[in-house]
Simulated scan of single mutants.
Amino acid sequence: MKTLLLSLLGSVAAFAIEPLINTTWLQQHLDDKNLTIVEVSSKKSYESGHIKHALHTTIDRWRMNNGTFISVRTPQEIQNEIQSLGINRSSDVVLYADIQTPKDFLKASYIFWALHYHGIENVALLDGGKQAWIKEGAVLDRYTAQTESSNYTVKTDPARIADRVYVENHIGKLPMLDARPSDKYLGITPTATVARDGHIKGAMSYSWNYSVDNDYKLKNIKKLEKLFTQGYQLDKENEVIVYCTGGLETSFNYFVLSGVLGYKHVRLYDASMKEWGNLEDTPMIQYSYEVFQK
């Protein structure tokens, strides 16, 4: 019986990828049959050289313009993209970006969230992205990878997302994290795409880049754990809402909390300040830091 249990546990572990993997792990698992590697970049970047077996996607296949704000595409459109990448519920998916700018880096974490939201749980980010792979001296491939389409049917998880009404109804009831730089949070520096300066009433400031070093590698996990549990007083069993300007920055806070640190109830306000700050009557605060107190 004990042998059977250990065998079952081993089988489960084999299908559960860690949310953050490094170049060494990826080199050792490149040829795993259940592994789907996806580069998030421009077509030109992908064709100039990518990790062996990596498929290609762009952020535009996951997000759409709603006028004043951008949000995740329709479930049918996301399903089409997931299927075209050959991803199914049992796939282990590794996402990595060609990091030329901070925004490039955040595109991969947004797709990490989008996959979670649409029912794909076994997703990882490559620590340091394509640049870490190159720095290690690992080989880049120019062969355009091919895969068979999957028949995956998306099932969205409403607990992974928040809209304006949900956020407004939970002000003062749930902790919220603003992933923008502190000057944007305080409303000192205007944002060209947002009419009103400041942050959502009751939200705390935690800029996404505090979690990474200069090479876009995640900082010490134990320190991040302590930072959120002791500094921000976040409980892993309780809900937290994350937001930013337009969905990208906050996706990395989602990745750190929900993926790496194991917070069980993280909602991403996808439209974020491009919606909230362009409305006239949404509650906002300017020029002060806030601490959540229920």
Rank of each mutant, 00 (worst) to 15 (best):
D183T: 06
D213T: 10
E237G: 10
S211P: 03
L186W: 05
K217V: 03
R160A: 13
T153N: 13
F228D: 10
W208V: 06
V154Q: 12
I221E: 10
N220I: 01
N238Y: 00
P190E: 06
Y232C: 07
D213E: 11
T245A: 14
A203M: 09
R164Q: 13
A195V: 14
L174H: 08
D163P: 07
P181G: 00
N220F: 00
P158A: 11
D163L: 05
Q230R: 11
T193F: 02
T245I: 08
Q230A: 11
D213W: 06
I188A: 07
D235W: 07
F228S: 11
A159E: 15
S205R: 06
C244P: 10
L218C: 14
E168Q: 04
D197F: 03
D157E: 15
T189V: 15
D213C: 09
K173Y: 08
L234V: 06
L186N: 10
Y206I: 13
S150D: 12
D215K: 06
S205K: 07
D157K: 15
K222E: 04
Y243T: 00
A203Y: 06
V194G: 08
P181L: 00
K222R: 04
M204Y: 02
H199I: 05
A162M: 05
I171V: 07
Y152P: 08
I241W: 05
N209W: 11
T193K: 12
L174Q: 10
R196D: 03
P175Q: 05
Q230K: 14
Y185K: 04
V240E: 09
K223P: 00
S150K: 07
A195H: 08
K222N: 05
V240N: 08
S182A: 13
E239Y: 00
V154A: 12
L227H: 09
P181T: 00
A192G: 01
T191G: 02
K217A: 04
Y166K: 11
V165M: 08
K223E: 15
G187K: 10
V154P: 09
N238L: 00
L224V: 02
I171N: 05
T229S: 13
Q230Y: 06
R160V: 11
N169G: 03
D178F: 03
T191I: 13
D163I: 09
D215Y: 02
K236C: 12
K155H: 14
S149K: 13
N209F: 12
D163C: 06
V212M: 12
A179F: 02
I200N: 03
T189A: 15
A162F: 04
D163T: 09
A192D: 09
E225T: 12
K223N: 13
D157N: 15
Y152R: 08
I188P: 01
P181V: 01
L227E: 11
G187C: 08
T153R: 13
K222M: 01
E237S: 15
N209T: 03
L186G: 11
W208N: 06
N169E: 14
S182G: 02
S149Y: 01
I221V: 15
E225M: 06
K223S: 12
T245Y: 12
Y210P: 00
I221D: 03
Y166S: 05
I221F: 05
G187L: 09
N209V: 05
L224N: 07
V165N: 14
E237T: 13
K155T: 15
L218N: 09
A192W: 02
R160L: 14
S211W: 01
I200C: 02
V240R: 09
E225I: 04
A162H: 05
K217Y: 04
L234D: 06
